[in-house]
Design a protein around this nucleic acid. Structure first.
Lengths: 223, 223
DNA sequence: CCAAAAGTGTTTATAATACACCCATGC
DNA sequence: GCATGGGTGTATTATAAACACTTTTGG
């Protein structure tokens, strides 16, 4: 085997919708390089570790948040020769879509972490601005023709909550009545629950769980 | 920097349509491990090399084929701890979509290479069966909602040639008349040329070049 | 003239949009 | 009762599919 060795890291684009705002999780770096700057959560892969395991572990270590039961997929790899001042580092970007989680806690290598609105992003360390942009683009594209929007909702949710996800991610407004028909008539998108919401004004809404369908024909948004 | 070092390789899923058959390029390995078995073209990334450059170089070295001017994109990374008997190797899979190219030539580390129909694939070395399956799936998905089908065609081509690409990749038949209207009425898909085909039976067809549009609304195939 | 492939027009089915309307609850 | 959000029905419009038909070449 040729001796051109790389360090391999994972970085995470963790996206959510909280209070109607499409947001991502950023850490304040506690160690060099880029100490004190904002970055995606992430770190090096261990010798016998799988990539997805590494992503889950690093997020837990740096923010205290667990990805158990939430959507996690590989995004892309970034390997420009000069992307890390420490040497040749290939980073495998990951995309996680989660519901509104608890506030993150500071952990190893991170001075702290917090949710930031996608609409007003600061500059990030390394090439993380690009990785984040790729993750946001992928998330928006996937919402369009899959049922992944429901991964932003709690375990049970109403049609309105689901609609607010689309509206937050795309910055559009959708007709509540046509939206309702669209999602309830798509087989496998929503699993009906016997329960309804009791809180709030107006007629109580039915609660649903995520269905097992993945693809969405036709797409949710037309250009 | 922690000392968990990986070798990094690139592997290529090179797809084309030749004589109406959706096909991929495979090499016969000339060195261990898996010597003598079929595999995707690929190899290790050099110390200061970018991933796309490495993919282009390795394909050229192993098959003599050039990707200049053709579609090449990153597919995904594969890093299961035991995927390579030589040690920890992360491979970045790539997807290339090319027109009907010349026959490949044997090169370094490869005893030979040839086009194989996607419909009747042999077992491959390493986890290359999985990488190839992911590449084919991605290509099929992208044809549906992008204008990438034209990357399988020569520099100038007719509407019929383009239709044959869709039919070969998906194994369906499409109505030539509706297809014609669909692609010619999509802005930026096809750039008209002054020339027409002179060969063949029937009315000569107009020749087109690839347009600069990328996305295709609405998608070409409905489920 | 005939066969074959290119390309156009028109009808029909289907699906998306707009929006009027009714329902169930809190106050 | 009335405001508020949930949910259904329906007319209109846009789009896709089916297919009859015309065009232009080779033999």
């Amino acid at each position: 085997m040729r001796g051109n060795l790389f360090a391999v890291a994972v970085d995470l684009v963790v996206l959510t919708v909280r209070q109607g705002v499409f947001s991502t999780l950023l850490v304040r770096r506690g160690i060099p390089p880029f100490e004190g700057e904002l970055a995606l959560p992430g770190g090096f892969v261990l010798p016998h570790e799988d990539l997805l395991d590494a992503a889950t572990r690093e997020l837990s270590e740096e923010t205290g948040l667990s990805l158990r039961g939430h959507h996690l997929e590989q995004l892309a790899s970034y390997a420009a020769p000069d992307r890390d001042p420490r040497g040749r580092v290939l980073s495998v970007g990951h995309l996680a879509l989660v519901p509104d989680l608890p506030e993150p806690q500071a952990g190893s290598d991170a001075a702290g972490s917090a949710w930031h609105p996608i609409a007003e992003l600061p500059a990030l360390a390394f090439d993380h601005t690009r990785i984040l942009a790729d993750g946001v683009e992928r998330a928006r594209a996937k919402l369009e023709y899959t049922t992944l929007a429901a991964t932003f909702c709690p375990q049970t949710f109403t049609v309105s909550q689901l609609r607010e996800v689309y509206e937050a991610v795309w910055g559009t407004t959708l007709d509540p009545r046509n939206f309702q028909r669209k999602v309830t008539s798509t087989p496998g998108f929503l699993l009906p629950t016997a329960r309804t919401t009791s809180s709030g004004r107006g007629r109580p809404a039915q609660l649903f769980r995520r269905g097992n369908a993945t693809s969405l024909h036709p797409p949710m948004l037309r250009d």
